[in-house]
Simulated assay, not measured.
Amino acid sequence: MKIRSMTLSVAALATVTALVAAAPAPASPPSKPSKPRTAAVHGAAQVHFAYAPKGDVIRFSVDAEAAPYTRPFTIKGTSLKGAPLDAKGKVTVYHYVTETGKAGISEAEVDCLVTGDGVATLTAVVTKSNTGSKGTRIGISVQDGRHGAPDRLGFSWGIANADPGHDPILARVGTCMAPAPFTTVTEGGFKVASAPLPQWQDPWL
């Protein structure tokens, strides 16, 4: 009887196992849609500029974040709700000149930002300055260094953006336009959050 009972138990176990194997797997809970990443640049740093006199100190601070279609404007009498690369934030530029012992300081409001693979290009319009540049749009590029490489930064005055017939320092800059990041960060650093281009929207109001 004991042998018969054991045989029946083994057979029953095999049947249960087969039924469990044949049953459909429980449905996994639906995953929450991931929030689209927002393009951004944050940080502050001192840079080495090859053409600056020895002893000069040049620093930049950048806090910029994408804000698509948030800067309405009018062109040829037509109102538009903004552009896909609209952005918000602040840029501060500090340049201590050894020769004069004075420092030039400018603050600017970010109006455009585009990123890609650890690199960002942004522009900002100067709102405060002791250098006479108020109202000028400036262009900044930032490279977030990888694998131990230093961060880098470029700016639209000094060696680039010569515009015939205009002040070479205050030459016109279009939105999101800046040269390659040609200076090296020597102190501090930047963090670039890269994101795909925002979805296109009809810009007309």
Rank of each mutant, 00 (worst) to 15 (best):
D202P: 05
V16S: 09
D111H: 14
S129L: 05
G89S: 15
P30A: 04
T184R: 11
D111L: 11
G101Y: 02
D163W: 06
H147S: 15
V126S: 06
G55V: 14
F60T: 06
T183P: 00
P203K: 01
E65M: 10
V97I: 14
K2G: 14
P68C: 12
E109Q: 15
K76D: 15
G188N: 07
A180D: 13
G132F: 07
W204H: 12
A83H: 03
E99K: 15
A12N: 03
A18V: 10
S156T: 07
E65R: 13
L122C: 00
G118E: 01
M6Y: 08
S156W: 00
T183K: 05
T175Q: 08
A25F: 13
G43N: 08
W157K: 06
L122W: 00
P181A: 07
R172V: 06
G148I: 07
S5F: 10
D63Q: 11
H95D: 15
V110Q: 00
A67T: 05
V110P: 00
P36V: 09
K2D: 08
P196A: 02
V93F: 15
G82P: 01
S31W: 07
A195G: 05
A66L: 08
K90Q: 15
T127E: 10
I140R: 02
A21V: 11
G158F: 02
G145D: 00
A108P: 00
M177Q: 15
T127M: 13
R4N: 08
V142T: 01
R146H: 14
D56M: 14
F190A: 04
P24H: 03
P36F: 14
S79G: 07
I3H: 12
W200C: 13
D111N: 13
G55I: 11
K32L: 14
L197R: 13
V10C: 05
V41Q: 01
H42F: 10
V192H: 06
A39T: 07
A22G: 14
H42R: 11
L13A: 11
T131V: 11
G118M: 03
V57C: 06
P84M: 04
T115H: 03
A83I: 09
V10G: 00
D163N: 12
V47D: 12
D151C: 05
I159H: 09
P168V: 07
S133R: 12
L8T: 10
